[in-house]
Amino acid sequence: MTKSELVAAMAERAGIRKKDSEAALNAFIEVVTEALKKGDKVEIRGFGTFLMKERAPRVARNPKTGEKVEVPAKLVPAFKPGKDLKEATEKELKKKKRK
């Protein structure tokens, strides 16, 4: 699903204009981004948590030369799904596998 498809689906579901839906989605993205920049996490009970995770340092290979390259540790944004989201998606996947 693309951003424009998400905006359209949100607008239809909420019974609002696409313009308002897009503004709400953009505001959500901005708020989550700012919180993560500050090192905070954003928890939406039942849906999931947006947080920063530390990626461990590792040794990689340059695909062009085959040379080993050290990649330093860094923080990356992550999403941890909540219980309700996990259960809802697992049920759907089980239904599809039965068919």
Rank of each mutant, 00 (worst) to 15 (best):
E22F: 10
A88D: 11
G66A: 03
A88W: 06
D40Y: 13
K97A: 10
E87I: 03
P57G: 05
G15T: 02
E90H: 09
K83I: 15
E87R: 04
A8I: 10
K41L: 08
K41F: 11
G15H: 01
F47L: 09
E34Q: 13
V76C: 05
K37H: 11
K96G: 14
N26L: 13
V76S: 03
E67F: 04
F79Q: 03
K97R: 15
K96A: 10
D20S: 06
I16M: 06
E54Y: 05
A88V: 14
A60L: 00
I44Q: 00
E5G: 07
K68S: 11
E22T: 11
K97L: 11
M10Y: 05
A88C: 03
A56Q: 12
K95H: 08
S4M: 14
K41M: 13
K38W: 09
D84A: 14
D84N: 08
K96C: 00
E5M: 09
K97C: 04
R13V: 03
L36D: 00
F28D: 09
T89M: 15
E5Q: 12
G46R: 00
A60H: 00
F28H: 02
R17S: 09
G46M: 04
A14R: 09
E67R: 13
A14D: 04
L93C: 05
K18S: 04
G15D: 01
D40W: 13
A14N: 11
K41P: 04
V71N: 05
L75K: 15
S4H: 15
E92M: 15
